[in-house]
Design a protein around this nucleic acid. Structure first.
Lengths: 156, 156
DNA sequence: TATTGTTATACTCTATAACTATA
DNA sequence: TATAGTTATAGAGTATAACAATA
C-alpha cells in the first residue's frame, strides 16, 4: 500500500516510528475533546480527580508538570465550575482539589466524545478483529502505564 | 484474548474511559520528545515531511490546525535548521517545506527517544505477550488512522 | 529553614481577523 | 475576485525564578 509497507525488511522500521502513531492519536483525542470544549491537559486533570480529590503537588507529579502549570490549568477549570479548591486543615499550605457535579458531567461527556471518535477511527479498519486489536492494545497501555507509575513511585 | 473474557460486565466501563489512556500515553510521548528538545506538534510536522515535501495547506490539513499555526510551528523548525522553506515555481503563492539533513537526524533521534520510552513503559507489563498486545494495538491504530484519513479525503 | 503553592514573566501552540502577494 | 500564506493579536499551557504563607 505505502512505500514502507512494500519493503521486505520493514518490520524494524514499523516499530521505530510507532511513537508517531501515538502522536497522531493524541491529536485525534484533542479533536474529540474540542467538541466538549476541553483541552488535553484539562481532560487529564479531570480524569485524575475522578475517584478522589488531590492536592496540588499530587496533581503536578501525576500530570508530569511543574507546580505553576497546575495552578494555570486548574484556574480555568475552577472558573468554569468543574473543579473546586478546598483548604486542607491538617496542613494549611496545601490546597485540595475536588471534582464538582458539573465537573463529573463534563468528564463523562468528554469520555463519550473521545470514545466516539476512537470508535469512528477504528471502524475504518473494516475488520472487527483488527478493531478489537486496537482497543485491546489501548487496554494494555493503560495497564502498562499503571505499572510504570507504580515502578517509578517505588524507585523514587 | 478478547476484551470481554476477563470480566463479563467490565467492558463498557473499560471502553468508556479508554480516551484517558490515549491522553496519558500522549504525555509520555511528550516526555520522550523533551529529551530531544522537540514538541509534539514539531514531531508531527517532521514525521509528515518524512518521505516527501509538502506545501503549507497540506500541512495545515494533515496537522488539523489553521494556517497561522503552521507558520508558527515551522518558524521554530526553520530557525533550528530542521526544515527548509522553498518557493513553488508553478504557483508562487505557495510555499514548499522540505526536511533538511539535520531535520532527518532530529526525527530519527525523536523516533528513537519515544520508542525507548514506550518500550520502557511496556516492559512494566512483565508479560511479553501483553507487551506485544500493546505494540500490536498501536500498529492497528496506525492502520486505522490511515484508513480514516483516506475516508475523510474521499468524503470531502 | 524547608516546603507548598502562587505570582511574575516568557516562550510555544493555538485561534481569528486583517493583510500581502499571486492567480 | 479568489486563494495561499503571513502578520497582528489574544488566550491557554508550559517553564523558571522569585515570593508568601505555613510547617
Amino acid at each position: 500500500m505505502t512505500l514502507k509497507e512494500s519493503r521486505p525488511d520493514a518490520a524494524p522500521d514499523e516499530c521505530r516510528t510507532l511513537g508517531r502513531t501515538a502522536a497522531w492519536l493524541a491529536k485525534q483525542v484533542e479533536l474529540g475533546l474540542a467538541s466538549v470544549d476541553l483541552s488535553l491537559p484539562q481532560y487529564r486533570v479531570l480524569g485524575f480527580l475522578d475517584g478522589s480529590p488531590a492536592v496540588s503537588s499530587d496533581l503536578a507529579e501525576r500530570l508530569a508538570v511543574r507546580p505553576p502549570s497546575v495552578t494555570a490549568v486548574v484556574d480555568g477549570l475552577v472558573a468554569r465550575g468543574l473543579v473546586e479548591r478546598r483548604d486542607v486543615v491538617a496542613d494549611r499550605r496545601q490546597v485540595d482539589h475536588v471534582l464538582t457535579r458539573t465537573g463529573r458531567r463534563a468528564l463523562d461527556d468528554a469520555d463519550a466524545a473521545v470514545s466516539a471518535r476512537l470508535r469512528d477511527i477504528a471502524s475504518c479498519l473494516g475488520d472487527d478483529l483488527e478493531s478489537e486489536r486496537a482497543f485491546g492494545g489501548l487496554l494494555a497501555w493503560r495497564k502498562a502505564l499503571r505499572a510504570y507509575r507504580l515502578a517509578q513511585g517505588t524507585a523514587r
